[in-house]
Every structure is written in C-alpha cells, then in structure tokens.
Amino acid sequence: MLITYLIFGVFGLVVAASALGMLLSRNAVYSALFLVLNFATVAVLYLILGAPFIALVQITVYAGSIMVLFLFVIMLLGAEKMPPGEPLRGHRWLAIVFGLVFLAELVLFLIYRGGMQAVVNAPSLEFGSPAAVGMMLFQKYTLPFEVTGFILVVATVGAILFTRGEGFKSRKRTLGITSGDKAE
C-alpha cells in the first residue's frame, strides 16, 4: 500500500506545483504548458481511482486538443506576455486575502466535517473500464449523450461564425468596391 501512497504523494505534489506554476508564470505559454502537465498528472490520479477511460479522455481531449488549441491561440494573437501591474486598486490584496480565507474555510471543513477514516477501496478491474462506461453511456445515458453531441455541433458552428464574421464583411466590401469600379 505504501507504493500507492508514494505515487499519490508524488503526483499530488506535481498537481499542486503545476497549478501554482500556471498561476504564477508570466508567460502565457508557460501557463499553458503547466496546465498540460497538471491535466496529465490528474489523469494518472484518475487511473489510481479506477477510471482508465476517463483518464485517457482527459489526456486526449484536455491535455491533447484543448490545450493545443490554447497554445495556438496564444501564438496566433502573440499574447504571451502582458505588462505586469494591477490597475484595480486593492484588488490583488483583497483577492489574496479572500482566497486564503476561502482556503482556510475549506480546510476547516475537511478537518471538522470530513471523514478521515473513509478510505477509497481499490476498485475491481471491470469498474470504469471502457466497456462498462460505454455500456452505461449507450444504455442509460443515451439522450444526454446525444445532447452533448448537439452542443458540440452548435459550439463548432458558433466558433466558426464568430471567427469568420470579419471575413464575410471584408469579402462583401471587396465585392462592393469592384462593383463600384464597374459602375464608374
């Protein structure tokens, strides 16, 4: 059992450190890379918790595609760095104080309300396997699954529409100029 604790300890530290790294790094590219690391380590925790399917989805979808998308956007906009500083007076101070208070509250909750004795048992191999998840997904959760598919399509269309808006206009403008030229 010690090895499990050891794995959890190491990866837990990496999770915490990468999260803080994302928060603190000046460069947005570093932030994104820290986040990729964070997601990957969380995926390992998922494996410990007997969720191999979710762990793989986490790596492919989050660490793979979403974060790649982030990196692309960062580089596309050239927004890696921003000038430091805090324009809102007292904001940073307040945010830090409240964040600490919030953390303290949650920790207190854990200490006084949590069950330290409750232990996660090692789940059976079938639990969380892609086959089991797939069976449940396509039997009990068919409708939500379809709905998520629909949401993704809508999101895709929306994203295309947003980014292509300017292109439409400029194309129209070009057409207008050419027709104007013809008229002259």
Binding site: L88, H91, F98, V101, F102, E105, F109, Y112
Partner: peptide, 24 residues
C-alpha cells in the same frame, strides 16, 4: 459597477466566502 469583469468575479467570490462561513 466599474465594468471590470475581475471586480465582478471578486464580488461573487466574496459571496461564496460568506456563504461558506455561514455554513461552517
């Protein structure tokens, strides 16, 4: 209502902190 999204988020967060304190 200063228009800064982060300011609004801080206000919401303040509420969350207060509710947690109340619950605790």
């Amino acid at each position: 209502e200063n228009g800064y999204v982060r300011s609004y988020a801080l206000t919401i967060f303040l509420g969350v902190v207060a509710i947690m304190a109340y619950l605790f």
